[in-house]
Design a protein around this nucleic acid. Structure first.
Lengths: 239, 239
DNA sequence: CGCGAGTACGTACCCACGGTATGCAGCCAT
DNA sequence: ATGGCTGCATACCGTGGGTACGTACTCGCG
């Protein structure tokens, strides 16, 4: 807004992004234009949200026109999806990096938890992935995307922990556990970042999840079987 | 859509909603108009989502005009918020009803869990509260609303369980636990409803959460202290 | 080197949709 | 009875997503 540019026809005069080696000049310019669009869109979506960000503002920021945008993307939602994939991919890679080399499941779980709590401090992750992802992409599509990245990490960790407990659960139940932890951490992450003292809040989340994991470990040691729900609720399941 | 009406000027000829006793005719009509708007909006938002639902469609469905809508609500978002509050309120009341009379914390927790799993089967709750709530209202406002209803229920249950364990946690940590469970259940609920076999999926969620609660109970019995994170991760917190 | 084809945009335009300004018919208190 | 206020309806506007089309530049090929 403040750094508005009057004429977009100077596109060739200004350098945009880093040239990609091994591609033709044409392809380089094309790629950098696309990158610029995603860059600007990421920033604006993060700051103002999806609905409040107009395509005009985005193309102005990237110093191109709508023609360029619609050449690279089928529409606003597709652009959002590109941004989503980038943010989601970065997050997933950061978590995987933190998991590197960890063998002990519990250690791995704590490392993953900490990495996720770092990721969720990023405004772009909260806004684009957690907050607006399900709404803009629709839940189905949102889920497909997650399944291939961050959720996969969580599933990996959860599976390790469950296997360490030597309960042999079917895939469905593992997925369920992973969903639960993923949802828990997303929700916790949001509250962490909006807390007056995020560091303290993150510490609390670590304690809470750690406590749950400790419960798992004790159950594993004492050889408690699954399922255990009936033992908790004596009365029959009245529908 | 299918029951569309051509002219909205017949508003006085058709009965709208139930007359409210103890109010003037004017007030009755006004209230029923407002109700009709919320009714139609709830349906359309649930079916097509917030963004894809136009005000024109809503007012056509309620057989009024935009003038009426803007008389009762300050805009589209305010209308959504009215729908949100209703859905959220219904959900909260349903859960509270299920909790009625339960004294044992673990029993109470399972009852609450089951009630929530019922609630989350409703398409309107998933779409309006879980999926689009955070995006449309903004996270801050979404949280304020939740805090007064369903989340309050979760916090109540979680507090009971934690007190039964005789860990005396500060309010912040109780809130953190509640957030975690709330997020876990929301996420689980979404996956339940989109699963090929929702009944089986709901059963899985019950097993999983029940298992976590079982962990809590065992930890309570063996007198494990909080926090326990350091015991899990030997290495120092390197940032 | 010339040249046709296709890419990577730019320009101009459409129209759906949220929001506003204003008019007006009843109802209700005085 | 009547003035005023509530509860709408009508008409209009601006923004913004999307589209149709034009065009310059590049690249491969003879």
């Amino acid at each position: 807004m403040s750094k508005g540019v009057s004429k977009p026809s100077v596109s060739k005069l200004v350098p945009r992004g880093v040239p990609v080696p091994g591609a033709s000049r044409r392809q380089q310019y094309s790629a950098s234009t696309k990158r610029a669009l995603v860059d600007v869109a990421e920033q604006l979506f993060t700051d103002n949200g999806y609905a409040a960000t107009s395509l005009d503002t985005i193309v102005a920021g990237a110093r191109v026109t709508k023609g360029a945008l619609y050449h690279h993307f089928s529409g606003k939602q597709a652009l959002f999806e590109a941004v989503f994939e980038r943010v989601e991919g970065d997050a997933s890679r950061a978590i995987q990096k933190a998991l590197k080399g960890k063998k002990d499941p519990w250690e791995k779980a704590i490392a993953g938890l900490r990495a996720f709590l770092e990721v969720v401090q990023e405004a772009r992750y909260r806004r684009i992935v957690i907050q607006e992802g399900p709404s803009v992409l629709g839940y189905e599509r949102y889920r497909e995307q997650e399944e291939r990245s961050t959720f996969a990490n969580v599933l990996d960790i959860v599976s390790s922990v469950l296997e360490a407990g030597e309960w042999d659960l079917d895939k469905d139940l593992q997925q369920t556990f992973a969903r639960i932890f993923f949802g828990a951490m997303s929700s916790a992450g949001e509250s962490v970042s909006s807390a007056p003292d995020p560091v303290q809040a993150a510490a609390n989340v670590e304690i809470a999840i750690g406590f749950i994991l400790e419960g798992f470990r004790v159950l594993a040691e004492t050889g408690v079987e699954l399922p255990v729900v009936d033992a908790l609720a004596e009365e029959p399941v009245e529908e």
